Simulated scan of single mutants.
Amino acid sequence: MREIVFDTETTGLSPGNGDRLVEIGCVELVNRVETGRTFHSYFNPGRAMPSEAEAVHGLSERFLSDKPPFDTVVEALLEFIGDSPLIAHNAAFDFGFINHELGTCGRPTVCHSRMVDTLAIARQKFPGAKHSLDALCTRFGVDRSLRIKHGALIDAQLLAQVYVELTGGRQIGLGLVAAVIEVDPAALVVETIAAPVVLEIRPPRAHAPSDEELARHAAFLSGIKDPIWNRLAGRG
């Protein structure tokens, strides 16, 4: 099964308030295994970058000024994601921005039935715990040392590892194929069962002490002062 794990960076929290998509990173999984195929692009949002947003992802207005607008990259993006399920952390946020950008350039929006939200999965699986991407990386031992700031591609790569763990680990895609063994009847070897072996029964060995051993034992006991068996004699 093919799935796409993705993440976005934006100028703010709401496309309805004029915020725009500035970065997207996608990672391809097939049967819960990364294939190495990715899609990554920055976009010129055509508006100023608020300082609060820049502090999160580090993408300045100057850096994005020579990047392509979304509508010039949309064909390559749609070709990459195809009709595969789309996995994101707090997926409604990312879907909202992607669908806003698609609508702006006259493209059909992505159906929410394709949405897989790892945040919802984590909340159901670990109620009461922290569910941020950083917290889940720590829980599953995913190395996030390269994540200095939010970045769409690196966050998608981290999320891909987290998603695999959230959904059962790498063994979820492990399939064992039963082998069918054909046996040639002519090649069968008939084993003759030999007659049962009769074991020789030996007479029991004598284990009674000799007169010498009894004398040595009595001498040993006579050297014990006030033995406990004398004090217990007559009790019972």
Rank of each mutant, 00 (worst) to 15 (best):
D7N: 05
L64F: 03
C26G: 00
I87W: 00
D94W: 04
A135Y: 03
F70A: 05
R114L: 10
V198M: 07
V5H: 02
V198Y: 04
R114G: 06
E61V: 05
R47I: 08
N31L: 07
S60D: 10
E34L: 09
F220M: 12
V22P: 00
I121E: 04
Y42F: 15
M49V: 14
T109I: 06
M49I: 15
T138Y: 09
D19G: 03
D184H: 08
I172G: 04
G128F: 07
S41L: 06
I121G: 02
F140A: 00
F220R: 10
S51I: 14
D94L: 05
F63V: 09
Q157L: 14
S222M: 09
I87H: 00
A233L: 14
R147D: 04
D71N: 11
D184K: 07
E34G: 02
E79P: 00
E34F: 03
R147I: 11
D83F: 01
R235Q: 13
T72M: 11
E61T: 11
D19H: 13
A187M: 12
V27N: 01
R20E: 09
R202Y: 10
Q124A: 15
S222G: 08
P68W: 08
E28K: 03
D211I: 05
P185Y: 07
L199A: 14
D155A: 02
D71S: 12
D155H: 03
R170G: 04
P68E: 14
C105R: 14
A53K: 00
Y42A: 08
E23Q: 15
H217C: 06
E191A: 10
A218M: 06
I154G: 00
G173R: 01
A92P: 01
V197P: 00
W229R: 12
F95E: 02
V180E: 12
P15S: 05
A76H: 10
S145A: 13
I172K: 13
C26M: 04
G16W: 05
A208Q: 14
R139K: 11
G236Y: 06
L29I: 08
V30K: 15
K130M: 11
L119G: 03
A187Q: 13
E212R: 12
